[in-house]
Amino acid sequence: MTKGEVPNVVGLEVLKKNGVNVEKLKELITKGVGAEFTTYYYYTILRMHCTGLEGEGIKEIVEDARIEDRNHFEAMVPRLYELGGNLPKDIRKFADQAGCPDAYLPDNWEDINSILKVLLEAEQCAIRSWGEVCDMTAGKDHRTYDIAQKIMQEEIEHEAWFIELISKRPSGHFRRKFVGQSPHTGSQGGLIHL
């Protein structure tokens, strides 16, 4: 076998036999991890602007979501490469192809509700994005599905946090054991913020 030549990849062969459109799957994953990475960046800015009595009250929960979104990037990127995909070489292209909008700081950021609405929008887009990957892989690509559904679980928890903060509906959530715990995706080995 010559250098650079890839042998038959059984992990891909079984996906194709199961009817998975691997090219389309790689495209969706790249968009999904793009959204996680850009969200991590923009959440950093949003968190910095959680100030004052109300802002400080939600800063830690924003930090949990921020770190867990980065964990989602870490959890899924290795799978992208296993599937034969890769991250774009240019981060500008990576950001432009992301599946979700940039979570820009709103002009009226002093109103903490305005930041919460942007956070909620970002989480809801992520749920739709990973839902696409789950739908495509359920019962066909067990490994990708396993990672994507774990990410989905945490995104749904993030959505619940921000809905509860905005609407004050009753909440089953208390707090993570440590910042960015990622109770679901943590087992993927992507935790880098302990």
Partner: peptide, 15 residues
């Protein structure tokens, strides 16, 4: 448009 409120910043055209 992504903007749900006037105070939101519009997305880049490339996106």
């Amino acid at each position: 448009s992504w903007k749900k409120e006037d105070t939101w910043v519009e997305q880049d055209m490339e996106w």
